[in-house]
C-alpha cells in the first residue's frame, strides 16, 4: 500500500478520526475537573468600581470577610491579567464604551459579576443617563442584588460563580 492509499482509505481515516475524538474526549473528561478546579480557586479580579457599592466591595476584600479564603483576593488593575470583572456600581451611558473596551481586553477564559442592583438592572436610576443593567453591555455570569449587597451575599455570589466554573466544558486542542 502506498502512502496516498492510506490517506484516502476511508476505513482507516474513519478509525483515525474516531481515535482522535476518543482521545480528545478522554483528555477533556479527565482534565476538565482539574482545570476548572484550579481556575475557580485562582480568580484574578478586575474591580470596575464606579459608585457607592465600592465601599462594600472594599469591606469584602478586607480581612473580616476575607475573600482570600476563596482565592479571589488579588486585584489586577490591568484587564489583560484578570479573569473576573466585578462591575461594582452604576454604569452610565458615558461609561458603557469604557466597560466594553475593558471586557474585550480581558483574555479568555473570563467571567463577569454584576455587583448591586445598579449593575444588574440599573436599579432605581430609570433615567436618561443610566444603562439599564450591565448585561446590555457585556454578558454577565452572576447577578448580586442589593443596594449595596451585604458581604454574605457577595461571598454567596462568588461561590455561585465558582460552582458555575466547575461545571464548565472546554475544548482540548490535539
Amino acid at each position: 500500500m502506498k502512502d496516498e492509499d492510506i490517506i484516502h482509505n476511508e476505513v482507516l481515516v474513519t478509525r483515525r478520526s474516531d481515535a482522535e475524538s476518543w482521545l480528545r474526549q478522554t483528555i477533556e473528561r479527565m482534565s476538565q475537573p482539574g482545570i476548572n478546579w484550579s481556575r475557580k480557586f485562582s480568580l484574578f479580579n478586575y474591580p470596575f468600581v464606579t459608585a457607592c457599592c465600592g465601599m462594600e466591595f472594599m469591606s469584602v476584600n478586607g480581612p473580616r470577610y476575607d475573600m482570600a479564603q476563596y482565592g479571589a483576593e488579588f486585584p489586577r488593575f490591568s484587564p489583560r491579567q484578570a479573569d473576573l470583572i466585578w462591575i461594582v456600581g452604576t454604569i452610565t451611558q458615558k461609561q458603557a464604551p469604557i466597560l466594553r473596551r475593558v471586557w474585550e481586553q480581558m483574555a479568555e477564559p473570563k467571567w463577569a459579576i454584576a455587583f448591586g442592583v445598579c449593575a444588574s438592572t440599573g436599579g432605581f436610576y430609570d433615567n436618561y443617563c443610566t444603562v439599564q443593567g450591565a448585561d446590555r453591555i457585556i454578558p454577565i455570569d452572576v447577578y448580586i442584588p442589593g443596594c449595596p449587597p451585604r458581604p454574605e451575599q457577595i461571598l454567596d455570589g462568588l461561590r455561585l460563580l465558582m460552582d458555575k466554573i466547575q461545571t464548565e466544558h472546554g475544548r482540548v486542542m490535539v
Binding site: P97, Y128, R136, I137, P139
Partner: peptide, 16 residues
C-alpha cells in the same frame, strides 16, 4: 419637555 424614557446610548446595546 425631555422625554422621560429617552436614552441615547453611545454604543449598541446587547439584546436582553
Amino acid at each position: 419637555d425631555y422625554p422621560i424614557t429617552k436614552r441615547q446610548p453611545l454604543i449598541e446595546e446587547r439584546i436582553v
